[in-house]
Design a binder for these strands. Structure first.
Length: 302
DNA sequence: CGCTGTCAATGGATTACATCA
DNA sequence: TATGATGTAATCCATTGACAG
């Protein structure tokens, strides 16, 4: 019974941008059903933990797949348990909260549990009698059939409740603790694989974003260059000048040193010898066109 | 024969829940 | 009745050790 813990804090990462149609969610929960139906990368990344911790009947494990015969191990047939083990496990099936179900948990608690500790001791005796009495930890590899059956079960449910664990253990001729450990390690492997896939995906996202950023920067530079050349073009077409208008006759006054080509001094619209010329500017306010450019110094001042 | 990868197993930590004072 | 302390069960995680290639 895994409770919402530190992994359920909702640590998520969302990436969305127009050209990469991904919405990435890294929900770092303990995963992970490895079945294609739950593959998270087809539509983003969403790792979800299947809920299989209810007390539903372990009938799934009574299917034909679970009736497959388990084979013997190399050297040691670890599928053969002391007969008392099976009897005690059968007794435990009826109550998920019985002593049998407490095979899981802290080692000290497991060992302090009488029945299960006896199971472990009986199993250890069986091994040691067949071996040379070495008490060190032996590698007891599961058979291919056992692994296949466990794998099939894992595809359906990545976690086991006590009853299912016991049923599967009985089916495979393993100790419940072994089934538990197998699922635990299997979840770890799945999570590791998923992490690798996530990293690869994020790496690709990063590369795409870097490329996009590079492209946008280049585009900005091009637009700035285009804007600068356009401004300079218009400034050449209409050189800056300052004209004055007579307030009384409302004619443009002749500058004392008129620019060569601005206004014809003989124009009837030009006022002569008026005292209070009002300057006006043909150019719009400078700030509305270009700001902070060296060419601004060429702009006529109001 | 040493190296490396795989995998079962271990020990510690964490969490939720139940019980009790 | 509310609350904090304690125990229990389940799980995760890092690591260990055996073993095969």
């Amino acid at each position: 019974m895994k409770m919402p813990g530190k992994e359920d804090l909702g640590l998520s990462l969302s990436l969305s941008f127009p050209q990469i149609h991904h919405s990435l969610q890294l929900n770092l929960k303990p995963p992970i059903d490895p079945s294609p139906a739950n593959s998270c990368f087809s539509s983003g990344l969403t790792l979800s933990k299947p809920s299989w911790n209810d007390s539903s009947s372990p009938s799934d494990h009574n299917s034909d797949a679970f009736r497959a015969q388990s084979g013997s191990l190399r050297g040691i047939d670890m599928n053969i348990l002391p007969s008392t083990v099976v009897c005690e496990e059968e007794a435990g099936v009826s109550s998920p909260n019985s002593t049998i179900s407490s095979v899981s948990g802290k080692k000290s608690e497991r060992e302090s549990n009488g029945d299960d500790f006896e199971i472990e001791k009986a199993y250890s005796r069986g091994i040691s009698e067949e071996e040379d009495g070495d008490t060190s930890r032996k590698k007891l590899r599961l058979s291919k059939d056992q692994s296949a059956i466990l794998e099939e079960s894992f595809k359906e449910h990545s976690t086991l409740n006590p009853r299912q664990k016991l049923a599967l253990a009985k089916q495979l001729g393993l100790r419940p603790r072994q089934v538990e450990v197998w699922f635990q390690n299997r979840r770890a492997r799945t999570k590791l694989k998923q992490t690798e896939v996530d990293c690869e995906f994020l790496k690709r996202c990063c590369e795409n974003l870097t490329e996009e950023n590079r492209r946008l920067l280049k585009e900005v530079q091009e637009l700035r260059a285009l804007k600068l050349s356009t401004t300079q073009f218009f400034m050449q077409m209409a050189p800056p000048t300052t004209l004055t208008m007579c307030t009384s006759c409302e004619r443009v006054a002749v500058p004392r040193n008129p620019p060569s080509t601005t206004v014809d001094p003989r124009s009837p619209y030009l006022a002569k010898n008026h005292d209070r010329p009002i300057p006006f500017n043909l150019w719009p306010p400078a700030a509305t066109i270009v700001a902070h450019r060296p060419s601004d110094t060429l702009r006529p001042q109001p």
